[in-house]
Design a protein around this nucleic acid. Structure first.
Lengths: 120, 120
DNA sequence: TCGCAATATGTTTCGCGGAACATAACGTCA
DNA sequence: TGACGTTATGTTCCGCGAAACATATTGCGA
């Protein structure tokens, strides 16, 4: 974790349907870990919470973002679906684009801050 | 209130210094109401909370964003300083620019949502 | 000099999201 | 068939941020 982004973006489509940094990071972690449990461990989040976030995401989108399998040799696991990859990609792109397009405003605000010794 | 923005942006400069929709709206309300108490009433927020947010903001930036006066004919009041106007302006501009620059990604995500009957 | 409306600030209470804990079910392999 | 690691799901517990409540203070005007 090199540095937490200075710009956090949350998309909210009403009625409990929202997407922010937390869910995006979780998608990333699931892709890395290959399981919800592993992702939870990796980011210090309880399995139950990770699972419920996945539940929310799968419900919010037309197609599930995370595919899960139970049992089997290694107990089961979870992977990002094509939709999951797409959503994550779009979100990351949005983050990048917004930070880029808003760089001037962000810099202006940062310049007005008190005591920016470390700039973070 | 036409529609709450689908895009919420939070800027975080570490160590308790952060700026999001809540504080921005509060600045707006203070400019409208001419007082912290009035702003709090207008947005259904306790005076204490509004006051502490102002405190945070004034501490976070080099120059205070909100100028307060106590006592007097109408009890006192609060107005945005030049710095306050500037910060609010930069934040609103950032919101606008980000939403504009990220429109394509946002639309792509929205298109993948389930059941967007009301679009909100 | 008293009342008003606001700022200023401390103390206590409370709701809720998340943590912690507890199980069940699943499916492959040894 | 038993063990393992995961998904799946319910229940209870707890910390913390916000609300609620309580005062003190300021300065003008009636």
């Amino acid at each position: 974790m090199p540095c937490e982004p200075a710009l956090r973006i949350r998309l909210l489509f009403g009625k409990g349907k929202m997407l922010g940094p937390g869910k995006a990071d979780l998608l990333d972690a699931i892709r890395d870990a290959g399981s919800i449990a592993g992702a939870g461990r990796a980011m210090g989040m309880s399995y139950k919470r990770a699972w419920s976030l996945v539940e929310e995401m799968n419900a919010a989108f037309r197609a599930p973002l995370v595919a899960r399998t139970r049992g089997g040799a290694r107990g089961g696991g979870a992977q990002l679906t094509e939709a999951g990859e797409a959503v994550l990609g779009h979100y990351r792109a949005l983050e990048r684009i917004a930070a880029e397009a808003g760089a001037a405003e962000i810099a202006a605000l940062q310049a007005m801050l008190a005591d920016m010794s470390d700039g973070r």
